[in-house]
């Protein structure tokens, strides 16, 4: 049995848990806790360890989706989670420009852990205040060869598209080599 891993990262409250939940065949193993810090009271619960979702590909191949904890004080876990990943997705809440700088920091950190393919998913594109993916590409300084994909983490088809775009990026990289 072979297992593969894709990591979903991004700032606090960017929608990582929802994204994994949308496609996972098991209930996401999430260690959510009630939020106690005033500054982080954007949502009632937050992921303090990690989210863990699974997609069975066939009888001898399983894809795991790992969501990183979004809060800064848990970033010591990122490197451990990134070990052996196939690729990673940086999820950005397109409606919260105050998190863009943090998204860039996370992206740089993950790139330094492992130079595997990645894409940026511009979440909450269904909301009126969402910044368009093209603008996010500019403000996050994303290179032209990296995809910035529109996303709605609660919508299964949208999440499928994000995962597929990452896998297409991996195939494109294989074609180049």
């Amino acid at each position: 049995m072979q297992t593969l891993k894709i990591v979903v990262t991004g700032p606090f409250s960017s929608g990582k848990t929802e994204l994994i939940q949308s496609v996972s065949e098991i209930d996401v193993v999430s260690t959510d806790r009630k939020i106690t810090r005033e500054a982080e009271r954007i949502k009632h619960q937050t992921t303090v360890a990690m989210d863990f979702g699974r997609i069975t590909i066939d009888e001898d191949l399983i894809l795991y989706l790992f969501g990183t904890p979004g809060q800064k004080r848990f970033d010591f876990m990122w490197e451990i989670l990134s070990e052996g990943m196939l690729g990673f997705i940086v999820l950005v809440d397109s409606t919260r420009p105050e998190t863009f700088r943090e998204a860039r920091r996370i992206l740089d950190t993950f790139r330094s852990y492992s130079p595997v393919p990645y894409i940026v998913a511009a979440n909450k594109q269904d909301l009126e205040d969402a910044w368009p993916p093209g603008d996010l590409r500019i403000v996050l300084r994303i290179e032209p060869d990296v995809k910035v994909v529109p996303c709605v983490a609660l919508d299964k088809e949208s999440v499928k598209n994000v995962l597929l775009e990452l896998l297409y990026s991996i195939l494109e990289l294989m074609d180049e080599e």
Binding site: I55, L61, L86, P115, L164, Y168, I170, M174
Partner: peptide, 19 residues
């Protein structure tokens, strides 16, 4: 970016399943 250490066929299986 560097290609992950997997075979092309495995990536295509992932794509097929996710679709």
């Amino acid at each position: 970016m560097r290609r992950p250490d997997v075979k092309r066929g495995i990536v295509q299986r992932l794509i097929g399943r996710i679709r």
